[in-house]
Simulated assay, not measured.
Amino acid sequence: MPAYKTGKKTAQYSLDFKLKAVEWSYETHRTVKSVAEALDIHPFMLSKWRKAYRDGEFGMVKSQKIK
């Protein structure tokens, strides 16, 4: 059976990029949608990063919050 190749590559984002995107999205005058559009990523991806940040999965202290 032949090997299937999708040709589609998944973008890999650095931890620094994710943290900056999350921090930017927590600014009071910004929305997840507007930040995602500016960074050319899907809003769901940014929402997943925000949840991971809140859960401490980025190596941050779980109780730490962005103001």
Rank of each mutant, 00 (worst) to 15 (best):
residue 49 W to T: 01
residue 54 R to V: 03
residue 63 S to A: 13
residue 34 S to M: 11
residue 34 S to F: 04
residue 55 D to R: 06
residue 45 M to N: 11
residue 22 V to Q: 00
residue 64 Q to F: 13
residue 29 H to A: 12
residue 31 T to E: 05
residue 26 Y to R: 14
residue 29 H to I: 10
residue 17 F to V: 02
residue 53 Y to I: 00
residue 25 S to L: 01
residue 33 K to S: 12
residue 67 K to N: 15
residue 65 K to D: 09
residue 14 S to H: 01
residue 39 L to N: 03
residue 7 G to N: 05
residue 29 H to N: 15
residue 43 P to K: 01
residue 52 A to Y: 15
residue 32 V to C: 10
residue 21 A to T: 12
residue 66 I to S: 07
residue 51 K to I: 15
residue 8 K to H: 07
residue 2 P to S: 09
residue 19 L to A: 09
residue 18 K to Y: 03
residue 18 K to E: 04
residue 58 F to D: 08
residue 35 V to M: 03
residue 41 I to L: 01
residue 14 S to I: 03
residue 7 G to F: 04
residue 60 M to L: 13
residue 48 K to Y: 10
residue 57 E to H: 13
residue 31 T to F: 04
residue 48 K to E: 12
residue 4 Y to P: 03
residue 64 Q to C: 10
residue 6 T to W: 06
residue 42 H to I: 09
residue 66 I to F: 01
residue 53 Y to A: 06
residue 66 I to E: 07
residue 27 E to V: 08
residue 54 R to C: 08
residue 6 T to Y: 03
residue 53 Y to M: 03
residue 8 K to F: 10
residue 63 S to V: 08
residue 29 H to G: 15
residue 39 L to D: 03
residue 66 I to M: 07
residue 66 I to N: 06
residue 47 S to I: 04
residue 5 K to Q: 12
residue 56 G to N: 03
residue 47 S to N: 10
residue 23 E to F: 11
residue 60 M to P: 05
residue 18 K to P: 04
residue 61 V to A: 14
residue 34 S to A: 14
residue 1 M to I: 11
residue 13 Y to L: 12
residue 58 F to P: 09
residue 1 M to Q: 10
residue 24 W to R: 12
residue 41 I to G: 00
residue 40 D to S: 10
residue 50 R to E: 01
residue 11 A to D: 11
residue 48 K to Q: 15
residue 15 L to N: 04
residue 13 Y to F: 11
residue 55 D to I: 00
residue 6 T to C: 02
residue 1 M to P: 01
residue 22 V to R: 00
